[in-house]
Design a protein around this nucleic acid. Sequence first.
DNA 1: GAAGGAGGAACGATCGCATC
DNA 2: GATGCGATCGTTCCTCCTTC
Length: 284
Amino acid sequence: MLFESNLTRLEKVGVDDMSDAIWKRVYRCAEELTQQGVTPFSRGDVIRCVQRDDPSCSSDSINPVIQGLTDNLRGGAPSIVGKTLLHSVERGRFVLRDATAQPVSKESANTSGYREIRALENERNRPAEISWEALLIGGYAFKYICEIEPERNGDGTLRVSAPQCRYSNGEGLALNKYGTGPFCKFKIPWNITKSGVYAFVVNGHAKYVGECENLSKRFNMGYGNISPRNCYRGGQETNCRINTLLFESVSEGLKVALWFHETYDYKKVESDLRAQEKFEWNRA
DNA sequence: GAAGGAGGAACGATCGCATC
DNA sequence: GATGCGATCGTTCCTCCTTC
């Protein structure tokens, strides 16, 4: 059978461990509709078909997946197979892209469409103007980024975040050393995409230095927003530990500022700094 | 080898705007 | 108003590198 062999080939390229992935259900439905002679099929046809098997799967989840599988639509949720399965023939109507086409490998799927999306994002997120203010740490000039200002309650007290409570923990994992918090949530501007070395400066004293490839991501998707999984063993303990230290410092009324030294050679600069000075929040 | 620190891929959720 | 499209962000998991 033509369609069965296509799916089999997809599974052979390394995607057979994702039996519940929405993209796979979407593809099966597209095959099913095509076999029934419903081609082109509508977005709604696919959504109804997927929901027939899994009513809990909302159209909000299915829509970006359809988009992400369609070669001539931009955006959507990128899947492991890339934009290789569907083709939009008119607004809201699709056909299987090429029932006889060879699927792309995981590697090539990652290198084409996905990279183009990232390149566009990088272009959009041009670096922000960083203050001219500078701070010398170990001979390197750091620029001021912002003060760390966690979310607060209506009465001005720090809002305590407890992401560990949201983890389903089906494997019965223990909390890691720093998984109990308390945690806070904060963000820095999203448009500082440069690599370099950052420093937490508390009341004028550098407490921690670390490296990053993308400062905004490192903070907004790392330190500033602790994910439930990271509170448990195997999660990113460092994010938990540093977040709690920030929480405690700000709670005590201390000023915590983020400073940044932009460099491509961030590994060397970080190790150089840590060799020169001992920072209280860095571990050995 | 274990632990710490970080990057990145994959997938999904949500939101705003456009179009029918 | 419903549906479709596009963009952005969040979560989880995995891998890599370095240091001890």
